[in-house]
Design a protein around this nucleic acid. Sequence first.
DNA 1: GAATAAAACGAACGGTCGTGCTATTAAATG
DNA 2: CATTTAATAGCACGACCGTTCGTTTTATTC
Lengths: 222, 222
Amino acid sequence: MGMIVKALKKGQTLQTEDGREILGPDASKGERTRVRILDEAAALASENGIGAVTLGPLADRLGMSKSGLFAHFKSKESLQVEVLVRSAERFTEVVIAPIRAEKDKPKRLAIFFRNWLDWIEHPGLGSGKGGCPILAAHFEYDDVPGPVRDQAAKHNGEFYEFIRRLVAVALPQADEYATAAAIDGLGLSHLLRVRLMGDEKARLHTLRAFEALQKNPPLKGA
Amino acid sequence: MGMIVKALKKGQTLQTEDGREILGPDASKGERTRVRILDEAAALASENGIGAVTLGPLADRLGMSKSGLFAHFKSKESLQVEVLVRSAERFTEVVIAPIRAEKDKPKRLAIFFRNWLDWIEHPGLGSGKGGCPILAAHFEYDDVPGPVRDQAAKHNGEFYEFIRRLVAVALPQADEYATAAAIDGLGLSHLLRVRLMGDEKARLHTLRAFEALQKNPPLKGA
DNA sequence: GAATAAAACGAACGGTCGTGCTATTAAATG
DNA sequence: CATTTAATAGCACGACCGTTCGTTTTATTC
């Protein structure tokens, strides 16, 4: 999920390499505004989808002019891409980073999964009051070629890889690919049950399925 | 392009690929056109999402005027809702109906799952060359209130129910809710792996996870 | 085939979209 | 402070959006 944000003129410092966003009080006003825009755009995207991140309404929410906002990005498309990047940073911070505290590998997997369910369920944990912008983008742009799709695909690939490695060390006997797919799927399905259907028992069922998966994962060389 | 049904003259019938849905020779021209619009709109939706079903381009594809097209629906929103309804019909025809031929319940579940994966993988099995419009709508509209969301939620609810019942008779010892969620998730995850990441081994991994799930599902009263 | 109803069209509307420009204001620098 | 540079605003553009309306073409009915 680490991605270097370029596109600055002189030797500026807005960087996001090690998950640590360096944006001190010494940052220029432009850089601060830029992040403010990105966060608000992520909130908007979370409610209505990346495709609905349009300049006018976004500028209104920020209390600034459309053109003043636009001057920060070379196109709307690049704004959308950067929203995804920023959302991924948030995701890493909230869901992934905290699990490092747990040293026991199987427990670490379980903690990750619960964190992820929290992220999915809880509006505002990430950004807006809607769902995860990146997940929405995955399905919104899965067949629409372009930079947004590419960025979404990149994140999805990295996320899947992340789960796979977690599984590999937590459940050594398991087919890590199949198991990762199953875990990924549980999250996706959970999102629909919670956000689309408002199923109160969603978490109960999802966790049951997860526990069964932990106990009896697809095995290697089956 | 190849999917576009040419203009029909009086007395011709309009039917889907396997000749199930018959719009008889006595159907008025308006009704026939209406279906033609819906099918083309579904194709468009499958490529770019329901939100991208706009009147101008849709009219172009159909070789008719925007206003002539619009006259068939009271609003764009209602057009979108009807696209979902029609797509659901297609889904039932292609994925669900054929499984009734298999009487053995566990086998029936397996056949359904494979049919579903086919539907997810295969562009054009349903409508356009993109992915399933309904699934896309689920994530596109999960936080956008309105008729489109309501329709999508309805379909998702029915689909989940369908899987649950299938599980209940195929795997009586299983927690049908948790198992249904897991199966649903496998399909969703599969879609991303295939359509977004182009993972060649996606089907292999998904099927492995499914078989493990069949063998060791989450159990009742766990 | 004439009469009537249905369907499709063309043009136009008010709106919003993304994106250039130029001017103005605020910040950074010496 | 004065000067330079970055940030924002204002305005206008062309394109496209959904929608309406009056007209014309095509189906259907007598």
